[in-house]
């Protein structure tokens, strides 16, 4: 199986950021950071979610690429955030940068976390990831 050249082992800061986010928001069921071309760097999912990290990464990269191309076609601007709303919860995707590599952040949360809160959490987390040394 192909693996990314991004260093995915030495990421204690990233792990801390994920743990902190989960502790602050128990409604979150999935957090994933992957490269734009769909390789998982780090992911967390609750047992009930039971998603495979490589599949989450593939879906996230596809949706971001499709969102970005759609956004450019419709508005001539790159996409910002993609949101999937469902009765079971909301899933949000946005781009970030991790140690010089363009990446995708995915956060899925139960509906108890409002969409506005989820957007805020996603934005803040992507900023934290971008600032990691």
């Amino acid at each position: 199986m192909s693996t990314t050249n991004v260093d995915i082992d030495d990421n204690a800061g990233l792990l801390d950021a994920i743990q902190s986010l989960c502790a602050d928001h128990r409604e979150i069921t999935l957090i994933s950071l992957c490269t734009l071309d769909g390789f998982s760097i780090k992911s967390f999912a609750t047992k009930e979610m039971g998603m495979e990290a490589d599949k989450v990464a593939a879906i996230a990269s596809s949706l971001c690429a499709i969102s970005n191309s759609s956004s450019i076609q419709f508005t001539e601007e790159e996409f910002d955030i993609t949101i999937i709303e469902s009765k079971g919860g909301n899933t949000l995707f946005c781009r970030t940068n991790y140690r010089g590599t363009d990446c995708v952040v995915t956060i899925s949360a139960r509906t108890k976390l409002s969409l506005a809160q989820a957007r805020f959490v996603l934005r803040r987390f992507s900023d934290v990831v971008a600032d990691l040394p």
Partner: peptide
């Protein structure tokens, strides 16, 4: 065409790779 290529992080002999449709 509607293209969904992104920069590859692995060596595939070219810079971009398709990740969507």
């Amino acid at each position: 065409p509607f293209e969904t290529e992104v920069e590859s992080t692995i060596d595939i002999g070219k810079q971009f790779t398709t990740v969507g449709i």
